[in-house]
Amino acid sequence: MKSDASTSAAALKGAGAPGRSGEPRREAAAPAPPRLLLEEASDLLVVHLDFGAALEACERALRGLPPAGGPAPAASMEVKCSLCVVGIQALAEMDRWREVLSWVLQYYLVPDLPPKVLELCILLYSKMQEPGVVLDVVCAWLQHSDNQGLPEYRAVAELHLRRVLLPLGRMSEAEEFVMGSRAFGEEQQEEVLQAVHAAKLQLKEKLSGTLEAQKLNQEGSFSHKFLSLLTLLRQLWDSAVSRLLSLPLKKSLLAALILCLLVVRFDPASPSSLPFLYQLAQLYRRIRKLTLAHLHPLALRD
């Protein structure tokens, strides 16, 4: 019995020890702690520039942390914030910056967002000229009472004002935010309001310049159309004149008379048109005399 007990105890004790062949027996590998995965993700991001693997390491570590809204120790919250920062950088490097906000909100509720993560999101979308994506999230975060006592609250408020509200042209909303926010003192309110007024003037100048450019474009298009019409009329007139000159003299005068009748639209039988017809007949006789006088010397020379 002693030998059996000692044998079983030795077997249990040496379950993880190397066998006779010298090879250790492999057990199921335990998942790496989030802090080690954070170091691995940082190394993949900065040193190896493997952004996809860095994002995957961040997601594996985040799955091992408490879910959004749940209680968690301060150390875990710090690691979680750093993992989100690395993941945001990896997404931006892969040109997947549009997914950043939705990716972060998988692991945080809006009021629980760390200021560092929120600031990074504001700067990213502001740089990509789409600050409206984070407008609602930042407003909700700033209005939450638990966040108004944080030391980073003022920095987030200034970023929200300068990188979100002013670029979006929300001037009245920016003024109300400055006057009603606890983040700015009296002196700071004056400075920020001056910046808001300056941005408002720039916006008005920009709008007036846009309207003037539109007017100039409209005038330019009208003048271009008018010149095109004049060019077309000139081409039609030149073609008509060349056509008349190519015809014999009598046909040319007859065509000119018909053209005058069509254009002027007068009645040849009315008394008011007799002077015009008389002058036209005299003009025809003069042209005929000049033509015959020009042709007569040529006939004598021949």
Rank of each mutant, 00 (worst) to 15 (best):
V178G: 11
K204E: 13
P73Y: 06
P71G: 08
A240M: 09
A17S: 08
E190W: 03
L62N: 00
L150I: 01
A11W: 13
S76R: 09
V241I: 15
S145N: 07
M77F: 05
E158H: 09
P114H: 04
E205Q: 12
R60E: 00
E93Q: 15
S42F: 01
S8D: 12
A10H: 10
K206A: 12
C58D: 01
V196K: 12
M1W: 11
G169V: 01
Q214A: 12
V134N: 01
S76Q: 13
A198P: 04
V86M: 01
E176D: 13
L49T: 11
F51M: 07
L168Y: 02
Q279P: 01
L254G: 14
L274F: 06
P34V: 00
R286I: 09
T7S: 14
L249G: 05
N147K: 05
P33H: 00
R163C: 08
E59I: 03
R35L: 14
S3Q: 13
P33C: 01
L232A: 10
S6I: 11
S8T: 11
Y284S: 15
V104I: 12
E130G: 06
D136K: 08
P71C: 03
M179H: 04
F266Q: 06
R265N: 14
L135N: 07
M171V: 13
R98L: 13
R301F: 10
A68H: 08
D136Q: 14
R243I: 06
L274G: 10
L290C: 07
E78M: 05
L244Q: 07
V133P: 04
L247S: 10
Y125G: 09
A140P: 04
L168Q: 13
A53K: 03
D267K: 08
A195V: 05
S181D: 03
H160M: 15
L245A: 08
A195I: 12
F177R: 05
P24W: 02
R170V: 05
L123W: 08
F226W: 00
V241E: 10
V178M: 03
A30S: 06
L300P: 02
V85P: 01
H48V: 05
V164G: 03
F266T: 12
K2V: 06
A11H: 10
C58W: 01
Q129C: 07
P275V: 08
L280M: 11
V104W: 04
L65K: 04
A198I: 14
L65Y: 03
L159A: 11
A256P: 00
L120F: 06
G22C: 09
V137S: 11
Q188W: 04
L229Y: 05
G149T: 04
E152P: 03
K251D: 15
E187Q: 07
L124P: 01
V178R: 04
A157G: 02
R234P: 01
E59T: 00
F177E: 13
A32K: 03
I122S: 07
C260K: 13
S181W: 15
E130Y: 15
V79Q: 08
P297A: 09
E219R: 06
E186Q: 12
G69Y: 10
R243A: 14
L247G: 07
M77W: 05
E173P: 04
F276A: 14
S208K: 14
L261H: 15
M179F: 01
G169M: 04
R154D: 00
P271Q: 06
